[in-house]
Amino acid sequence: MNREQALFEYTLRIADDSLILGHRVSEWCGHGPILEEDIAMTNIALDLVGQATNFLEYAAKVDGKGKTADDLAFLRYDRDYRNALLVEQKNGHFGDTMARQFFFDVFRKLFFEGLTKSTDETLAAIAEKSLKETKYHLKHSSEWVIRLGDGTEESHQKIQESINNLWRFTEELFFSNDVDTMLLESGIAVDLNALYPLWKSQVAHVLAEATLEIPSGTFQQKGGRTGFHSEHLGYLLAEMQYMQRAYPGMEW
């Protein structure tokens, strides 16, 4: 693996997290718990699709094989997606969606803060823009986790269950391998090991305010970063890629 290949892989991870989560959040459009929240969630989906576009454009450039961001988004095989397992999990109920979003947003904010200092100027610039969006997403998702946790008995129970169910996908957000090692040396990548304790303490802080418990002793799943996904991704891609697969090579 050379530096370009590592950078391509690294950019895909960031892009695919946004792409797949953006897709999931967009599934809510028209079905939110109240009109105002429908609009809020669509804003988040739009931000994520925008981030995915920016990172995929860069990935395509680094790749240097004449592909476009759309080619990367819509024409890869399942095993070539690099998103974390967390973001491909199904929406479930509103609490499941907010818990997923909250875990991801805490990670994403820390990650983008680090990436703005990357020696890769393009990554740093996209991170700068995305960070502003992510701060708002985090505010939104933490407030909901707190509201649901400290709301009614029913909501408390539901969101605690969501937190417990999704906890097993959280450590993977901090997965790193030789891609990271190579890029850390040149100051491109973010040191994920250093972020993990920060993530844990920030999550604990919000969960405490929400009167929720931190799950313990849960086995951690991983595989997304190396292309081993859950069963859900195949269906998501079948839908997302439908047009490009059914009408190959056409412009829209």
């Binding site: 897709h23 459009c29 009109l35 989906a45 759309d70 009408y247």
Partner: peptide, 25 residues
Amino acid sequence: ITRAPNLRRKAVLLAKVQDEAGHGL
């Protein structure tokens, strides 16, 4: 929305459907 053929169309469609929610509001 989940089957839009490319990223641009997906974003535009999302923004449009969101506008409709806004207009309803």
